[in-house]
Structure formats: structure tokens, C-alpha cells
């Protein structure tokens, strides 16, 4: 009964057309009118930062940088990973895409740093307060599920075509997993360990820095890893609005229907993605097989007399046979 009246009402146009689009337009116009200097300043700052990072990445000879990146991978993960990354990075250079790849990497690095700097404090706040958590969650849902192309447009109206709207959209798109996994990581820290911090008189700040963040590190690093992965996919889409880098190659290949060029750019993205994923994955927990860990281990073993696991010395014999303390 009810439903049918409602349906006919809708068909008749009795339900009003809700002008959400108009409201959004008005809102964005207002922001644009009132905060333009702010957006301009932000834009200049971002552009300068990314340009700076790009310049740094392009300053050394490509082969040298590739070797350095491969060595970093080798140190934190394994020899195989180091060799693999070296080959992959050489392939990017062989395809003549090194400059574009470094532009994308610079954009990604800046976007990731900003996203992490926002995500971790918000995640910590959400972990500490159920209210904050409840308020933040729908915002994150919105950021994650709103089709990326939809906020490319307003980003362009604020910052014009180019690098900066690319960074902004990348940050918006990549931020949510950073917040979510930070919150999860902090909430999962063993309550008894946090209690121990309180029991020895630690302040909330000491507990956060000394107990919660270190113990949540693997989960938070998984979040950072996700931020980078999502950021990379978005950085390519941002090529549509002139963000440059590998994204612009992809856009060119689409407009020219150049399958070969598209795949070359795509493969370069995949190589960057795999390298960054494995690298940040390794930072979450320095693996016990990594060359760096072994080096550290060897150093600490020289200071410790007893190095073999599982050979616990028996408790002092006098403790075992100690007679019961006399009672009063």
C-alpha cells in the first residue's frame, strides 16, 4: 500500500528533485572565491617540493641510483630481491622511461609523506576514542569509494591542470588505509603490556611512544604499504589531469592507441610497485633472514656471552633448595 503510493508519487514528480549537485557546486565556488590565495600558496609549495624531489632523483646518473636502490633492497630484504630490483630498474632505463618513472616516484613520495603525516595521528586518535572512530569511518568510506575521476574535476578547479591536483587526489585516495590500519594496530596492542606501562607510572605520551606505536609498527607499516600502493595507482590516473610522469605516457598511448607504448609504461609502473611494496613490507619487520639483520645480530652477539637459543641456564641451585622462610 504504502510502497505503491510512494512509487507513484515518485513517478509523478511529487518527490522533489534534491539538488545535491547544485549544493556541491555552490560549496566549491565559495571555497574557490574565499580561499584562492591559500590554494595558490599550497599549490606553489607542493609544486616546488615535488620538483625538488624530482631533481634530487634525477641528479645522480641513472645507473648509480638504480644500484643504490637495489642495495637498499638487498640490505633490508635479501640478495635475490636486490638483484631482481636492479634488473627491473635497468629495464625501466632500457625502455627510456627513467625520467618519467622518477617523476612519478617523486609525486608518490611527497603524496605518501603527506598522507602518512595525516593518517597516523588521525588513526591514533580514532584508536583512543570510539567517538572519533565513529566520526572518521564514514569520511574514510567516502574517500575510498567515491570514484577517483569524480574528485579529479574539483581538484582541477582549485589547482588548475598539472602536478598539484594529481598529488591532492593521490593523497585523498591513498589516505584511508593508513588511518584504518593505524587504528587497528594501536587497538590490537596487548592490553597487559599497556597496563604494565601504566603500572610503572608512564604518562600517556610515554605509553604511546614507547609501547603502543612500536608494538603496532608492523600493522602501521602495512598501512603505509597500502598507502603507497594505492598512491601509485592514483598517480598514474592523475596523468589525465597533467600530473606528468608515467601517467602522461599512459594517457598518450591511449590517445594514440599505441599498445606497445602503453605496455612499456605499464610495466614500469609494475616494477616500481613491486619494488616499493617489498621494500616497505620489509620495513614493517626487519626480516630475520635479511643481511642487515644478520649484521646487527653479529654485533650484539659479541656483547652477549650466551648466544644459543634454547640453552637456558638452569636457575641457581641455591634457589631451588632454599628452605622456606620461617614464619612469625
Amino acid at each position: 500500500m504504502h510502497d505503491t503510493t510512494l512509487l507513484t508519487a515518485a513517478e509523478d514528480g511529487a518527490l522533489p528533485r534534491v539538488p545535491v549537485g547544485d549544493w556541491v557546486d555552490t560549496g566549491f565556488d565559495w571555497l574557490k572565491d574565499n580561499f584562492d590565495p591559500f590554494f595558490d600558496a599550497l599549490s606553489d609549495l607542493t609544486e616546488a617540493t615535488v620538483d625538488g624531489v624530482t631533481a634530487v632523483l634525477l641528479a645522480p646518473p641513472p645507473v648509480l641510483l638504480a644500484v643504490l636502490l637495489a642495495l637498499l633492497g638487498l640490505a633490508v630484504r635479501s640478495v635475490a630481491f636486490g638483484v631482481g630490483s636492479l634488473l627491473g630498474l635497468f629495464l625501466i632505463q632500457g625502455m627510456d622511461l627513467w625520467e618519467e618513472a622518477m617523476e612519478t616516484l617523486a609525486l608518490l613520495l611527497v603524496a605518501t609523506v603527506v598522507a602518512v603525516v595525516i593518517a597516523i595521528p588521525v588513526g591514533v586518535a580514532a584508536a583512543k576514542s570510539d567517538r572519533v572512530s565513529a566520526a572518521v569511518r564514514p569520511v574514510l568510506d567516502f574517500m575510498q569509494t567515491m570514484p577517483a575521476f569524480v574528485y579529479l574535476v574539483p581538484a582541477v578547479t582549485f589547482f588548475g591542470i598539472g602536478l598539484v591536483p594529481g598529488i591532492v587526489t593521490t593523497i585523498i585516495f591513498a589516505l584511508p588505509p593508513g588511518v584504518r590500519l593505524t587504528e587497528l594496530g594501536i587497538r590490537q596492542v596487548d592490553t597487559e603490556t599497556v597496563e604494565a606501562g601504566h603500572a610503572f607510572g608512564s604518562s600517556p605520551g610515554q605509553i604511546l611512544r614507547g609501547i603502543e606505536l612500536p608494538l603496532a609498527r608492523p600493522t602501521i607499516m602495512a598501512g603505509v604499504n597500502q598507502v603507497i600502493m594505492l598512491g601509485l595507482s592514483m598517480a598514474v590516473i592523475a596523468g589525465l589531469i597533467g600530473a606528468g610522469g608515467l601517467g602522461s605516457i599512459v594517457v598518450t598511448s591511449i590517445s594514440r592507441l599505441d599498445v606497445g607504448l602503453g605496455f612499456e609504461a605499464g610495466i614500469a609502473v609494475v616494477i616500481l610497485a613491486i619494488y616499493l611494496d617489498r621494500l616497505t613490507g620489509a620495513f614493517g619487520r626487519i626480516e630475520r633472514t635479511s643481511p642487515l639483520w644478520r649484521l646487527r645480530r653479529r654485533r650484539s652477539a659479541t656483547t652477549a656471552a650466551n648466544g644459543v637459543r634454547g640453552t637456558a641456564p638452569a636457575p641457581a641451585p641455591e634457589a631451588v633448595t632454599a628452605s622456606r622462610t620461617p614464619r612469625v
Binding site: 597496563e195 603500572a199 610503572f200 607510572g201 609501547i211 612500536p214 608494538l215
Partner: peptide, 17 residues
């Protein structure tokens, strides 16, 4: 808590890092 009372926990509550 810092000066007068300390505590030992059932599951040790040591910092693994």
C-alpha cells in the same frame, strides 16, 4: 606508581622490541 608500587604480570608484558 613510579616510586612505591611495582607490578609483575601474568603474561609477562615485556616489550618485544
Amino acid at each position: 606508581r613510579q616510586e612505591r608500587i611495582s607490578m609483575v604480570f601474568q603474561h609477562f608484558a615485556l616489550l618485544p622490541h
